[in-house]
């Protein structure tokens, strides 16, 4: 059996490797952060900048809230025949002072989570195509 290719489910939203990051932008004028990337106009109402730096966002934060889903969501979510409940967390980044959603890593039980728990970004498979595994960012409890 040949190994499948591994590719992100969406281009340019996250880095991969041992210490993956979400990729955001930061306004060159007012320093505000954006995720997903904002690179046309600044959303700070007091700033008209159109120039941004692409930045790697902090890869850790604390849980704002979380939930586990027991039903298969509608398309365009892609789920196989063997649907399993999945968990979603909203995690607040300290430095960027923003909350970002993501699924929770495979194998982490909903019962192990609590508001305020430290989490980090990992990259895992979201769904599989015939010859490609499509990946996405997920949140995972920080282990020392």
């Amino acid at each position: 059996m040949t190994e499948k290719n591994v590719a992100p489910s969406i281009e340019g939203w996250f880095t991969t490797g041992d210490t993956p990051h979400l990729i955001g932008t930061q306004c060159k004028t007012c320093q505000t952060y954006f995720f997903p990337k904002q690179d046309l106009f600044c959303k700070n109402p007091a700033c008209r900048s159109t120039e941004f730096d692409e930045v790697e966002l902090s890869r850790t934060g604390k849980i704002w809230s979380y939930t586990e889903h027991y039903y298969r969501p509608p398309e365009p979510y892609i789920s196989g025949d063997d649907f399993e409940p999945y968990t979603i967390a909203a995690v607040e980044l300290d430095k960027e002072k923003m909350v970002i959603l993501g699924q929770v890593a495979n194998g982490v039980a909903h019962a192990d989570l609590t508001t305020g728990l430290a989490m980090e970004i990992v990259v895992e498979t979201l769904y599989e195509e015939e010859d490609t595994e499509r990946t996405v960012w997920k949140w995972k409890p920080v282990t020392d």
């Binding site: 320093q31 505000t32 952060y33 995720f35 997903p36 430095k95 923003m98 909350v99 959603l101």
Partner: peptide
């Protein structure tokens, strides 16, 4: 996917 950032404002 996210809230706005309160880092600068």
């Amino acid at each position: 996917f996210s809230t706005d950032s309160a880092a600068a404002v």
